[in-house]
Design a binder for these strands. Structure first.
Lengths: 168, 168
DNA sequence: GAGGTTTGTTTAGCATCCTAATAATATACG
DNA sequence: CGTATATTATTAGGATGCTAAACAAACCTC
């Protein structure tokens, strides 16, 4: 064994199998997506993660809910509570959200948009539709739907794997 | 659903258009993918990013190249040089790579796998094929190929957008 | 109702990524 | 040749995400 025989056999060409290609294309696409979106959000003085919180709060408000607890945001954004704490901290510092108390539960805190926050959300939303269309313009409507279907199927499968992991 | 007029018109349903769905499914899929992969890499004492460097070095080595400069890694991994510095720092601390000098260029440093690093790569590669297959098992081979094709098309489009951004 | 468990949030500490700025070397051009 | 520019790597500082652990409050069980 003087050369890279085991490595080569196992991995030298592994990157070319359909499974590897599919996986890498997800990682790659996501990376590029982030790079395109980041300057877009920066125009509004926020980050993509912050927009996730703002959009979620706005939708909740539109649905008539009185703010969301940190835990609710964690569930909807699929990020852990400590991460939510950090993002909300920065949004609060920006003055676009506030934490108030939840009547009947002294542990919980409810996050709501401020007037300034609502104005920001409106400003972003006004630009959002065209921006999203620009981003996915590389695919026609049918391809967009196909992509959504395939990724949905994959995500369902991954969620199954995750449940098993947690169960262990 | 009669009230919330501005919010509803601008954003309430925006998440349901094919373009939005496609975009969100990428973000969602990537997030789940990370969650599944992270414990897998943790078994080997590394992170996904660190594996990216190790795999790239191993491929380079298999191609007969004498190590890669930090800049080469930056190009291949699509991350900025300062990020490469950090990942390589930690890999060096783990003893799986080393930085040596590049003959003829005192600025550059070449990163190569150590013996320990090569052993680690071999160990990961041995488990890698089955793991990748498990992950994408939610899709059949044709779907995997479709996904790769669609994401490739999207990524090409995004790269076009990025060039324009940089050109500004 | 007391004690144990669960839930909601935060803190601490780590890894990743970024941009901007620094330092050092290489290259190119006048 | 000598200065101006470009390249290579790093540092500094910020944002995001994670896990583990701490804490308080709520719930549940006996």
């Amino acid at each position: 064994m003087k050369a890279q025989s085991p490595a080569d056999a196992a991995g030298g060409q592994a990157g070319e199998r359909p499974a590897d290609l599919a996986l890498r294309s997800i990682v790659h696409a996501f990376g590029q997506l982030e790079r395109v979106m980041q300057p877009y959000f920066a125009r509004f003085g926020i980050t993509g993660s912050q927009w996730g919180v703002l959009r979620t709060l706005q939708r909740s408000e539109a649905a008539g809910e009185a703010g969301l607890r940190l835990t609710d945001l964690s569930d909807r954004l699929l990020i852990r509570p400590p991460s939510v704490t950090g993002v909300v901290d920065r949004l609060e510092r920006l003055g676009v959200v506030v934490r108030d108390s939840v009547p009947g539960d002294l542990r919980a805190k409810r996050v709501t948009l401020t007037r300034k926050g609502r104005e920001l959300v409106a400003r972003v939303l006004a630009a959002h539709g065209p921006q999203v269309e620009t981003i996915v313009a590389g695919l026609n409507a049918g391809e967009q739907a196909d992509l959504h279907r395939l990724l949905g199927k994959l995500t369902n499968h991954l969620e199954g794997l995750l449940s098993k992991q947690e169960a262990k």
